[in-house]
Every structure is written in structure tokens, then in C-alpha cells.
């Protein structure tokens, strides 16, 4: 069976200048698979600098991996040309973080919807195009008559972000990359946008890669989660197990630091201490989290811990779990539920 989208041992290193060897590894040996038959919502979570956005950029083909390859329907996206490239461009869509930056202030918001219709020849006539636009807007809970013909500054952040979701919907994509889609909109509007995303998955069978640092929304939206830290997978699994019973010290720290809107669940109640990164090159060869980990032992520094199976649908890259069987990095998505 050919996979819809596949990351095969992808590494991305950003280098500084032509002569310097020093580089930043933003993503290290990352593999994952999205299947066409079983669309899923997968969260990629991590703090700033963890490599989340690098995954989005790679997936959309904006940057090329340093090592490894990214396949779309079995073909390396680097080598897609002509018809195939257009199909890839249409079927892999994105919603970005900033709902203000993606609009050109000189055009009405219709522009964002008409361009892809023309480009991909989605409509036979003007009336048909109009119908398609109205349909897409309605399905994300917007009233077309409130939206069409308006300029971006006349709309709220939440409305604009939903137009982006509508645009993605218009193209009937197979994969949608949502990079922090709700971090810049008000809490009261987040619910609407996340609901639109889930609708896209449920009603149109779109696989969503949901990139975020916010584990609370991840918990509500996604089926599975991959937790990244400095470009490496720390923990992965089904979202409920990972968030309610994290096994990796980094995930524990993250989840313990979420300010839950519950009075009886206090910050730091699990007693995880935050350790400041000491700036040493601890973990340069081994576990990247070593410098901040309260459980760090010498073994952490020797090599990158593999993914240990800590449950039927959960893996953690931590020596604390070295008694468990190892899952090869290339089979990461096998443990993730769809």
C-alpha cells in the first residue's frame, strides 16, 4: 500500500554561512506516515525552537530536508513536476498562525478564495465560483453575506482565521497543516475554529497535522500526539494517554506547567522542578533534554535514547524506560491511533 504522505528519516540542519560547520539541527531523524484510508488528526507539540514549524515547512515543500526524504503518494516531493506538482499543491494545504499577515490589505477577502479557484480551475463559471465560495464559508460557520466583498481590516481575527480554513476546504485537500492556528485569536473564538478543523476531518476525511505548543487544545482536537524537544521526538502516543499519564520527564514537565483553568489543580502539584538550561553542551551526543532533566544519569549523555514502548499506544525516548522493548524510529506512527 502506498502511503499518502511519508517522512523517511528526515533531518534538517540550518547552517550559518558557507564556511562554518556549526549548524542547528532543527529536526533529527524524524519519520512518520499519514495514510489516505484512515485520516487522522496528529498533534506535533513542543516549545519554541523544538522543530515544530520546521516540520510544517518541510511538509509543504518550502524547504528541503538535509537528509532523508519526504514522499507524497510514494514520490519524493522534491521531484514532483507539472501535473503532479499541482495536485500536491492542491491536496496539501496550510493554515498559518497569524490571521493578519496572510491577507493583502489592498484586496477584499474574496481574493484569497478566488485565486485558488482560478489557479486550480475549480469552477466552470463565475456563478459556480460564487456558489463554491459561499458553500465553503458556510461550512466554517460564517455568513457569506457578512464576509464577501469586505476588506481584511473590517473582519475580526477569528473571522479571518476561519476564512483561511474555508480556503483550505475549498480545495478539498487530503492533508492540512495547521501551524498554531488559534494562538492569536481570543479564547472565546478558539472553540469555533477548532470545531471547523474537526469538521474538516470528520466530514471531508482530511488528515490534519496540528502544530501547537498548547497541550490543552491538542488534547481536545487530536487523536495522537508527538512531543518534540530540540528536534527530537521525546514521547509519542495517543493523546489521552500521553497527556493523562506522561512517561517522559520532559512531557511531565510540560503537562505540569500547563495553567489548567481548574482551581484544585495547582501548578507544579506533581513536584516537577524546573531546571534552567545551564548552557553546557550536555546532551550534545545523547538525550537533548539531559541538561534540564531532574532524573539525568550518566547514561543519558552517551547516545540518543531510542523510542521505548511504554504502553500499547505510547513510546518514550528516555533511559528510564530502557527495560521496555524498542520501537524503531521509522515505525513511529505504527503506535499512533488513527
Amino acid at each position: 500500500m502506498t502511503h499518502l504522505l511519508e517522512f523517511r528519516n528526515v533531518t534538517k540542519t540550518y547552517t550559518r554561512g558557507y564556511f562554518s560547520d556549526a549548524g542547528t539541527t532543527a529536526l533529527q531523524d524524524f519519520s512518520m506516515v499519514l495514510d489516505e484510508d484512515s485520516p487522522t488528526i496528529m498533534t506535533v507539540a513542543g516549545e519554541s525552537g523544538s522543530g515544530k514549524t520546521t516540520i510544517a515547512m518541510l511538509l509543504l515543500g518550502f524547504i528541503e530536508p538535509t537528509k532523508g526524504e519526504i514522499l507524497y503518494k510514494g514520490k519524493n516531493i522534491k521531484n514532483l513536476r507539472g501535473e503532479e506538482r499541482m495536485t500536491f499543491r492542491r491536496e496539501v494545504q496550510a493554515v498559518f498562525q497569524d490571521p493578519f499577515a496572510v491577507f493583502n490589505p489592498f484586496y477584499t477577502v474574496d481574493h484569497l478564495l478566488t485565486v485558488p479557484i482560478e489557479r486550480f480551475k475549480l469552477a466552470k463559471s463565475k456563478a459556480d465560483a460564487r456558489n463554491k465560495m459561499e458553500e465553503a464559508l458556510s461550512s466554517v460557520g460564517l455568513r457569506p453575506e457578512d464576509i464577501l466583498g469586505r476588506f481584511p481590516h473590517q473582519l475580526s481575527g477569528g473571522q479571518r482565521q476561519r476564512i483561511n480554513v474555508a480556503r483550505a476546504l475549498l480545495l478539498k485537500p487530503k492533508v492540512l497543516v495547521a501551524d498554531e492556528p488559534v494562538s492569536m485569536v481570543d479564547a472565546s473564538l478558539r472553540a469555533n475554529i477548532l470545531e471547523s478543523l474537526r469538521g474538516l476531518h470528520r466530514d471531508h476525511g482530511v488528515s490534519i497535522v496540528y502544530i501547537t505548543h498548547d497541550l490543552t487544545t491538542a488534547y481536545h482536537v487530536a487523536n495522537s500526539i508527538v512531543v518534540l524537544y530540540k528536534g527530537g521526538v521525546m514521547e509519542a502516543g495517543d493523546v489521552e494517554t500521553v497527556i493523562q499519564k506522561p512517561e517522559h520527564p520532559y512531557t511531565k514537565l510540560l503537562i505540569d506547567s500547563i495553567p489548567w483553568p481548574e482551581l484544585d489543580r495547582r501548578w507544579g502539584s506533581d513536584g516537577m522542578m524546573v531546571k534552567e538550561a545551564d548552557g553546557s553542551d550536555k546532551g550534545a551526543k545523547g538525550c537533548r533534554f539531559m541538561g534540564r532533566c531532574p532524573h539525568a544519569v550518566d547514561a543519558c549523555g552517551t547516545s540518543v535514547p531510542p523510542l521505548y514502548r511504554v504502553g500499547p499506544t505510547q513510546v518514550a525516548s528516555c533511559v528510564l524506560h530502557s527495560a521496555n522493548p524498542v520501537l524503531p524510529a521509522t515505525q513511529l506512527t505504527d503506535v499512533l491511533p488513527v
Binding site: E47, H213, L254, S257, I258, P259, V274
Partner: peptide, 9 residues
Amino acid sequence: DVVTQRQVM
């Protein structure tokens, strides 16, 4: 991010 947020708060 959440970890730094907690430290600052």
C-alpha cells in the same frame, strides 16, 4: 512557552 511561563509567573 508553558515551562518558561510558569517560571516567570
